[in-house]
Design a protein around this nucleic acid. Structure first.
Lengths: 207, 207
DNA sequence: CATCAACTGTACTGGTCAGTATGGAGTTCC
DNA sequence: GGAACTCCATACTGACCAGTACAGTTGATG
């Protein structure tokens, strides 16, 4: 009960050990899974020991939640990096879908981490709430872009809300199924997947 | 190394303790998760002790794989029960999708078990191979029905293979997302989800 | 210099649990 | 009747690991 609580919920010491521990935890969790990584390893990967880790975080669950927050931050940074050179809502939407598909199919760390968190969410309401917020954020992100693309006449879609729902669900499903069908991870399949997902959002209008 | 191997791979003693242990394991695993259930509990739920369990199964992993096989058996039984009164490929397809959506959205045990197995598949190649076979079976099931419906003129679909791929992926995604959006589990939403998924397979032809 | 707070390391505890060792009970078959 | 096999229970081991106790160390501040 030191500064633990404020640290884990509000890591104001940006590049401090708290942050470094969260990064080490994320790296380990997303390669070997949460249950298979102990906090001694996390601490060691950050260059400290468990005694120090427990000063920054009150429990393993707090470490997991910090790793989640880091994952969200990185998603935001990467999705905006993948789309910042795009002009127009439709092009942005295409780039965002392309980035998401790529990370679903090729980024093992992404798959491992999200699968682990989903499994944890079955039993832990805090983790579930955290991940639900993130899912909601991504959904709203795609929803906003799709509405923009429809508004600008680049896209025609009868029911944007449901279309985005379905597209996001399909994306999650593809991420999961890719683990069992590695053959769908090739570049040509990746592109076809993007086209299929985009078609769920409506039909593109020529100018 | 007793009769363990033959038992776990070929449970010929149909209603024996081996089967009963697998059922107990499935029930426990699909409510509390695999890591959170120990083999003493599994044995106790089947009315025996761990010593007996280890005569029937060589390891916890063997118990998990037996529970998987039980899950596959039950899926086959339930999907055929849900469709056996249907006349025609399209009606069968509709009923199969409706059953799958219902079990995705409302059946917690189904969600917990499959999520746990997917998470385990990240690290265990045997479990992954087992689940991959099941995914392949379900995919081929929907593929066969869709081809039939197209062949009989009830359905029009340009690319059946890709359409089924996408529909199955969307179904998996919906199952996962439902954990975080309980509001989509209502009956009216369930029906809309079915219609949406069916529309992925093509457009129905009036007779 | 004394004091306090931030931070870290070492060593330990307590609980959990997969897997093992072993000694049976019941049955079958020679 | 005894040998062999099937099935089961009791008791134990050994490893793992989250969390705790506590004693530093460092640096800022009055």
């Amino acid at each position: 009960m030191n500064a633990k609580t404020s640290e884990s919920t509000n890591p104001h010491t940006a590049a401090g050990k708290g942050e470094e521990l969260a990064q080490a935890a994320f790296t380990l969790f997303s390669t070997r899974g949460i249950d298979r990584v102990n906090l001694d390893e996390v601490a060691a990967a950050a260059g400290v020991t468990k005694g120090s880790l427990y000063w920054h975080y009150s429990s393993k669950k707090a470490v997991v939640l910090a790793a989640c927050d880091l994952y969200y931050l990185r998603w935001r940074a990467q999705i905006s990096a993948a789309t910042d050179s795009c002009a127009g809502a439709y092009a942005t939407l295409e780039a965002a879908v392309a980035y998401s598909v790529r990370s679903c199919l090729l980024d093992d760390a992404n798959r491992v981490f999200s699968t682990e968190i989903v499994a944890l969410s079955l039993y832990d309401t805090d983790v579930r709430a955290s991940w639900a917020g993130f899912l909601d954020e991504t959904q709203r992100y795609f929803l906003g872009l799709t509405h923009q693309a429809v508004g600008s006449g680049e896209l025609v879609c009868a029911d944007v809300d449901r279309a985005v729902d379905l597209m996001v669900a399909a994306m999650e499903g593809i991420k999961q199924i890719a683990l069992f069908q590695p053959q769908i991870c090739g570049p040509q399949s990746e592109q076809r997947t993007c086209i299929r997902l985009m078609s769920l959002l409506g039909s593109q209008q020529e100018r």
